[in-house]
């Protein structure tokens, strides 16, 4: 071998070792406890899982960002949760009802609910995300206008309902008609998109734990949504995040609520099974 080839092999050898990843993946060991509730931010991956371990994005954030999420008085998303509570109690629509008219106390009736979404809806013949379910309640039961996906109201309500599942392990039903959607989501996850020609897996499976310029790559888990991001200076939905990742690789994103994003959401719920719900999480 010439000197050049030996060097080249050495350089690429380093990559191969890094590619083996897991052992070197870099995130911290802090544990997340909010209001006395311990939230699972790292769980073992079941056999056959594409990841060697399942880790929340929280572990990859700086201590300062982690601290904001760990304290409800500091968490900047709590204003939205309070707004969600006022919407919960407010009568809206021609039926003269509020969410509370049917569901009573949100802390009781919505306990753990978020952790089971997306969920098959027989009547609609498709999976419902939490947003879909909220709008179905509004249009059918309240005879009120549906909320836009990224509206202040929808973000506040999904944050309020999501918070009632804090600490509950994410676990959706995978059988029956959901199976096909999860499979479709998996296919999308491994599909390369955009001018940069990357798949979700290129960043969040092959390279989590590493820096991509100023960003510390996580596994792209979904257990914290809607999430407060400094960059957004507010809450944003999961589908907004999907859209941002697609634009970063210079791909035309799918629409919020599209079949593609719903399928991706269902697949990611399975991929992150067991992680505790953190809603509303704080990220940079």
């Amino acid at each position: 071998m010439t000197a050049r080839i030996i060097k080249r092999a050495a350089a690429l050898g380093v990559i191969a070792a890094m590619g083996a990843g897991a052992a070197l993946a870099d995130y911290d060991d802090d544990e997340l406890v909010i209001d006395g509730v311990k939230i699972a931010t790292k769980v073992p991956a079941p056999p056959g899982h594409p990841l060697p371990e399942i880790v929340s994005g929280w572990r990859f954030r700086s201590d300062e960002t982690q601290a904001l999420e760990a304290d409800d008085f500091e968490n900047p998303a709590m204003v939205a949760v309070d707004y969600g509570q006022s919407l919960w109690d407010a009568v809206d629509g021609e039926a003269g009802k509020s969410c509370a008219s049917c569901h009573g106390d949100v802390e009781e009736s919505m306990k753990g609910v978020r952790a089971g979404y997306p969920k098959w809806n027989e009547k609609a013949g498709r999976p419902f995300t939490l947003e879909n379910q909220i709008n179905a309640c509004r249009t059918e039961n309240m005879k009120a206008e549906p909320w836009k996906w990224e509206s202040r109201e929808m973000l506040a309500m999904t944050a309020l309902v999501g918070k009632q599942a804090r600490g509950y392990p994410m676990k959706i039903r995978k059988d029956g008609p959901m199976a096909e959607w999860i499979e479709k989501g998996k296919e999308l996850y491994y599909t390369r998109f955009g001018q940069l020609d990357m798949a979700c897996s290129n960043c969040h499976e092959d390279n989590y734990g590493k820096m991509i310029r100023a960003d510390h790559l996580s596994q792209g888990q979904i257990n914290g949504f809607p999430t407060y991001r400094f960059k957004w200076q507010g809450l944003g939905s999961l589908h907004r995040r999907f859209s941002g990742c697609m634009k970063n690789i210079r791909a035309e994103p799918f629409k919020r609520g599209s079949d593609e994003f719903v399928a991706l959401e269902a697949y990611l719920a399975v991929r992150g099974e067991g992680l505790g719900i953190e809603t509303p999480a704080v990220r940079n």
Partner: peptide, 24 residues
């Protein structure tokens, strides 16, 4: 590889409109 092709202008899946048909 994850590394993008910097001088290729076709064969991409859903490229953003403003970059469609162009190399990086």
């Amino acid at each position: 590889t994850i590394m993008p092709a910097f001088y290729k202008d076709s064969g991409f899946n859903r490229p953003l409109r403003k970059f469609a048909g162009k190399p990086i």
